[in-house]
């Protein structure tokens, strides 16, 4: 992203080019976020007049079991990010070694990304039930099904494993393979001549060479966990059982669209916004660092 400086400016033309984008963003991004901050200090049903209640929503939120549960659940998802990074990197490295059929593997593993969270959520909601095909098979072997969706511990971990590790695998493979492709092949040849093992090459050559890609991957996963998983939760578990897969996004949804406490929901939104702002800043820094 090199940009030349020091030449004469382009006058008003750039602003004309930017006008559609800026108008859309002002209306659909900046205004909603600003309004969220305003309504977080009110009691409001989403229509009609609102009532100022100061910090009351925030006070309620801090003592709200559901809020704490959703923070905790989001935290648990974050714990899957290292696993996702390691697994994806390793498989990419395997494929990089020219394993036969790697293109087919890469394509098939990409299918979940292709179909998206809504379809995958519905598919897994059928597939992981206690009386599903999978559990019928498991019951045949072990005598009892695995309660993927109705045990609180399993439910959140199932979501974590599926969403953070499994569903992105295909995406990550393409991504890391492209990054690894940029590594000078002679380094690998030299390592091989030195008799370095796969693991040693992986740790000493591959990972350090694609450091930026790995960092982007981590940031990407943070974004998925905080800002993109609503559709999957909504179609797979609806935040349940109880509150065991409730997340900030899902809480915002329930408060605003089931209980119609839009003011209170906005307070949750402000918290989510704060998290996202931090992730966003991290991402921007990363981009700037790479471009230098």
């Amino acid at each position: 992203m090199r940009r030349r400086r020091g030449l004469e400016g382009d006058g008003a033309v750039p602003y004309v080019f930017l006008a559609p984008l800026l108008a859309l963003l002002a209306a659909f991004m900046i205004y909603p976020v600003a309004m969220n901050i305003v309504t977080s200090f009110t009691e409001w049903k989403g229509y009609g007049p609102w009532k100022w209640i100061g910090l009351a929503n925030y006070k309620t939120m801090i003592g709200d079991e559901q809020f704490l549960a959703s923070i905790l659940n989001t935290g648990l998802m974050v714990l899957y990010i290292p696993l996702s990074t390691i697994v994806t990197l390793l498989i990419a490295a395997f494929l990089r070694e020219g394993i036969g059929g790697w293109k087919v593997y890469r394509a098939i593993l990409y299918i979940p990304n292709l179909l998206g969270y809504v379809l995958m959520g519905v598919i897994f909601s059928i597939y992981l039930r206690d009386d599903s095909a999978l559990n019928t098979a498991i019951r045949g072997i072990t005598g009892s099904p695995i309660h993927f969706l109705i045990s609180p511990v399993l439910a959140i971990n199932t979501v974590g494993l599926l969403l953070v590790v499994f569903l992105h695998l295909g995406f990550g493979l393409i991504y890391f393979l492209a990054a690894m492709n940029g590594i000078d092949k002679s380094i690998y040849e030299a390592a091989l001549i030195d008799g370095a093992s796969f693991w040693k090459t992986f740790l000493r050559v591959t990972v350090p060479s694609i450091r930026f890609a790995v960092e982007f991957w981590v940031v990407f996963n943070f974004i998925e966990v905080f800002a993109r998983m609503f559709s999957f939760i909504h179609t797979l578990t609806q935040g349940g059982p109880g509150y065991s897969t409730f997340t900030l996004e899902y809480g915002i949804f329930i408060q605003a669209f089931s209980k119609f406490k839009v003011g209170y929901s906005s307070a949750w939104s402000v918290v989510l916004f704060a998290f996202c702002a931090m992730i966003s800043v991290a991402q921007i820094r990363l981009m700037q660092r790479r471009d230098e």
Partner: peptide
């Protein structure tokens, strides 16, 4: 009850009878 009462009540039922929390 109120808007959303049933959702809350049901989640509580899940916690007591389904998950045993």
């Amino acid at each position: 009850g109120y808007n959303g009462y049933e959702d809350e009540a049901n989640r509580l039922c899940d916690r007591a009878f389904v998950t045993g929390e």
